[in-house]
């Protein structure tokens, strides 16, 4: 369980970083890191199947979709 206490601040920081990164491609890549950490947290909580699924779906498929979308639109986020 102690791993969770270690991971969670990291998770929050990364989430905030995703939100405030102007470069969308970078944001997407940070988001994939977020998903991976989340998967580890779930594994620690006794849900290994879900963790695997999150690695495959959240950090895999979703990120690929995001990258494709960013490539077809624009990388910068105008405020």
């Amino acid at each position: 369980m102690s791993l969770i206490y270690f991971l969670v601040p990291f998770l929050l920081v990364i989430a905030v970083a995703t939100v405030f990164t102007r470069d969308l491609l970078a944001a997407v890549i940070i988001f994939s890191a977020y998903s991976l950490i989340m998967a580890v947290v779930w594994q620690q909580l006794g849900a290994p199947v879900l963790a695997l699924a999150e690695v495959a779906i959240g950090a895999g498929v979703t990120v690929v979709l995001f990258v494709v979308a960013v490539c077809r639109t624009t990388r910068e986020e105008k405020v």
Binding site: E54, F66, E77
Partner: peptide, 20 residues
């Protein structure tokens, strides 16, 4: 956040938080 892609990322963050 104004960017649509950012909004979708936001949705994803919300989703994972609910799953958590």
């Amino acid at each position: 956040r104004p960017s649509l892609i950012k909004k979708i990322i936001g949705i994803n963050i919300m989703e994972t938080s609910v799953f958590l």
